[in-house]
Write a protein that binds this DNA or RNA. Structure first.
Lengths: 157, 157
DNA sequence: AATTTGGTTCTGTAAATTATAAACTAACGG
DNA sequence: CCGTTAGTTTATAATTTACAGAACCAAATT
């Protein structure tokens, strides 16, 4: 498989994005490739060869991405190869994970307020403020998503 | 300075949270300490001793956090020590950074759609859907924040 | 039953990260 | 100007990570 310069460039950018989110470099490149590839589904061999990573690195990356639900595969009758693709539900998941992360932060911060004993309550105020914002965000986000879905329907109609 | 078990535990949790966000372990622990400490401001020495990290690690961590605007310090007349504390504006910044990151992702995804050539447009649809959601989120987030600020005013009154 | 295909698992290692200890420096106090 | 305090810088040690290469394995093919 050959890729255009733009595709190669994008794979690197997507790679760096995912590296910053805690993925290993090779794993991040596999995500990039599956995303920018003209073909939506690629085999183990295609991935390994196109990205120039060893079979072991490819195996590890694919299994990691399968386990974390980022990709999936199909097979075809009379063909032992697996055809990997990005899980399309993955987008919503990715967004949800970011939001969950904020939730985790919020939980920690609430415990901070419980545990530390500051003489002057002024020091707690800003933190309380942020916590309550995150709580508000959590309640309002579903509404926002609903609203957007409505808008989207309108546009289609 | 002595910390309760709960405080020590929280420092580790905050540490792990920040490590996942790309901070070095020692840096992440310093953030944790400044957050859970009963005293809002701590000296270099207190930080170094309480966390049991070397002077150089402490120096690096504090300078890194100063440079990235996560902490700040005050001084007092006739006292050469600096008193470090978490920048309170930091909370909003932290949230903004997460949102910026989603914006970055969105930019990349838009370019993906431009660059890859998939025969079947069905494969582009879900991605387009996600992109338009992120766009919508970007327009609506300021409103949401404004709304929350209003609610907050009401509560105070 | 031997070989090929489509991987997986194990071992070694280069490179990067993280932290330490010790030497150093700049400011102040006596 | 000598010692102490408050840190910084440098050199280096320890740990972790990320991957390649090779051996390995199970299913299908010849």
């Amino acid at each position: 498989m050959t890729l255009s310069d733009k595709q190669l460039e994008l794979i690197e950018e997507i790679g760096i994005y995912h590296e910053n989110n805690g993925f290993q470099p090779a794993v991040a490149r596999v995500m990039g490739l599956l995303l920018v590839s003209d073909k939506p589904e690629l085999t183990f061999e295609e991935i390994s060869e196109t990205l120039n990573i060893s079979k072991s690195a490819t195996s590890n990356a694919l299994n990691m991405l399968l386990n974390t639900g980022h990709i999936e595969y199909t097979t075809f009758h009379g063909d032992r190869k697996r055809y990997f693709r990005i899980k399309s539900s993955n987008w919503r998941d990715l967004f949800n994970k970011k939001m969950e992360d904020l939730g985790k932060l919020n939980d920690i911060l609430k415990r901070v307020l419980e545990v530390r004993k500051r003489d002057n309550p002024i020091y707690d105020e800003k933190l309380q403020y942020f916590i309550s914002f995150l709580d508000y965000l959590k309640t309002q986000l579903p509404n926002l998503i609903e609203q957007w879905e409505k808008e989207n329907e309108k546009q289609k109609a």
